[in-house]
Design a protein around this nucleic acid. Sequence first.
DNA 1: TATGAATGAGTGTTCATTCAT
DNA 2: AATGAATGAACACTCATTCAT
Lengths: 213, 213, 213, 213
Amino acid sequence: MQTTPKPKQRDAEATRKRILAAAKKEFAKSGLGGARVDDIAERANANKRMIYHYFGGKEDLFQAVLEEAYTDIRTAEQKLDLDRLPPREALETLVRFTWDYYLKNPEFITLVNSENLHRAKHLKKSEVIPVVSRRFVSMVKTLLDRGVAEGVFRPGIDETQLNITIAAIGYYYLTNRYTGAIVYDRDLMAKDALEQRVDFNIDTVMRLVCLEP
Amino acid sequence: MQTTPKPKQRDAEATRKRILAAAKKEFAKSGLGGARVDDIAERANANKRMIYHYFGGKEDLFQAVLEEAYTDIRTAEQKLDLDRLPPREALETLVRFTWDYYLKNPEFITLVNSENLHRAKHLKKSEVIPVVSRRFVSMVKTLLDRGVAEGVFRPGIDETQLNITIAAIGYYYLTNRYTGAIVYDRDLMAKDALEQRVDFNIDTVMRLVCLEP
Amino acid sequence: MQTTPKPKQRDAEATRKRILAAAKKEFAKSGLGGARVDDIAERANANKRMIYHYFGGKEDLFQAVLEEAYTDIRTAEQKLDLDRLPPREALETLVRFTWDYYLKNPEFITLVNSENLHRAKHLKKSEVIPVVSRRFVSMVKTLLDRGVAEGVFRPGIDETQLNITIAAIGYYYLTNRYTGAIVYDRDLMAKDALEQRVDFNIDTVMRLVCLEP
Amino acid sequence: MQTTPKPKQRDAEATRKRILAAAKKEFAKSGLGGARVDDIAERANANKRMIYHYFGGKEDLFQAVLEEAYTDIRTAEQKLDLDRLPPREALETLVRFTWDYYLKNPEFITLVNSENLHRAKHLKKSEVIPVVSRRFVSMVKTLLDRGVAEGVFRPGIDETQLNITIAAIGYYYLTNRYTGAIVYDRDLMAKDALEQRVDFNIDTVMRLVCLEP
DNA sequence: TATGAATGAGTGTTCATTCAT
DNA sequence: AATGAATGAACACTCATTCAT
């Protein structure tokens, strides 16, 4: 297993971060139940005992990983600064960003799947998730309102339904790429396949939202 | 735990079916790694040894469950008999069916997620999956061609991309309903929410595929 | 560690008994917290897993051991058949029996100490203990009443206080024999020391209970 | 957990005392094996490292606690100044004191039990215990001799047997109060129960020792 | 076909203790 | 003197699987 080097000794914050990063990878690879505390410690180049020292236990560590994962994507979305773009460009930017983010951060998808297998038990306990989520939803709501006001978006589109659809068409393709490769007998991760998919998704959303696609 | 009654003694086929049904529930609830062989045996009202007798082991049992799950949905799709309907009705029927099937068979989604966590390891070994999959893909391909020929569908739509999108917009909503409830601060499983979603999905697909939505 | 031979293979009841006997020794030697499940399994010549199979867990096993220990001493007391003896002989018999039992069954004392360290948590859950205890107390009560009626015992002696004192003067001597040996600078377990003690205890109780000691 | 305030920084002796007091409570609550070094440090409001600095280790700390506990009770006994009282009053005073001391210092009993579980391993290493013990035994011996000389005590009573009995009838009642409450189906720690017991104990000893009880 | 006892490798977690500052 | 990060051995307990009947 790939391990992160221990930069200096006795650096509490660094150890904590190494554990968190290692845990993200292991949880993404094997899920909450399948991940092994030993493996996380080994990958983090840390003593297993430190996991309990810093996080309390495996599930608390999983919650910390989840919170970080959600905070990261929500932060990146805010940085898109959609307000500066015309509605159509902003919408396309969001769809493409969502796709790219899932593609470059495959752990996010697996972590979310794992959390849903456990019925969002850990997310429910989180205090930070509702905060960042609200900001995200209102960002899209603002965009929709602006597009309607400017006469380019259809009115009456629910921002939650749209959010879910934008996520769904990228997320599903990637999370189910292994079974999908067999069912559709295709290499879904080939370069052209990925480009074809993101174009298809942008087209799907544009036709759904815009008055003149 | 709910157990299935043992109807008569020494009924080989019945025992096999009870085990399969129990395994589907347990695997759906906890994933491949999280499901317990003991629990499956208990739920099936069968001796644990029988699982090894009939299926070989936990992973073989999982493969059998998966194959059945895929065969079931593919069989149900064929029964839709889309050929008898005009293209637009056929397409809407397919979208609605997909949604309803996921809703009524929530195990399917969790099983597929679990299999993707394991990179389709078991599906790869299956001989029946490619057969039923091909039939499904060609069914949609036929529908698309028919719609184009009749001048109601846009030409050039890839049947795999469409299939994936139809699945995605239902599947994602349901598999991520627990985290979704928190992120969007809504009861995604309320009756109106479900109705609203299927309508939204049909609208999405119609706008994507039809020339005059 | 001394292990009990495994007489025949696949004898459920025998395995259960071997585990129970081994557990009694280990719990007596090290207390509930100090005893090791591995050591119990090894001593019982059984697989560790069997402990969980038959008893559920370490604490349940401890409770089973305790219940057996209490039932054993209470059963032995009933076999004294004090009713057939004149009151004074019966009383002396009881005091001597109590001493001898503690001496020959040193685990009993350590188990009870351990249970008291845990505030009788396990005894509280037991259903059998109250039953056998009541029978024991009423046995002594009957004896006291008979002695008073026959004019040989002082009236007004509380049977619980007497029971506790009879137990105390033997139990304390034996449970504290290690620190006692240092404090009193004597070998408290030498043959004469033991004989001297039981005589002293009988004398103590006789002077306490009888009208003419 | 209740912590002792840290009065000033860098007060070596105070830190040592806080640790000792905290250790006594934790060892009394959970025994030597069950007590946690972390908990002791936390309760003492001291750094865990200090325990090793001042005492060497957990077992050395336990020995220090034990030595203090024995020294305390022996010192308190000396303060009774039994020589100033007539023999019968002196004896009653001793019995009552022993009871009261156990009642007010319940840690003493649990510590002694714990030490006996470990076969007096730590007491054996102590140099102070034999000294204070000898003084205690000779105090009672002197009392017995005086009583005999004054014609109020029976001659020939062994001071060690008497000491053990005086301790036993109080100690056993209190250390086994949890199991006792279940066996005798009584609240052994109720105010009247305690008063009744000390009276019973004094009566027991008086009848044992005095010529005319 | 069916049963339930038995197994050994592993799980997350806890512990007393030591190291570096 | 004092701190808190770090360690490795152990701990109770669990698991899929096999054996004996």
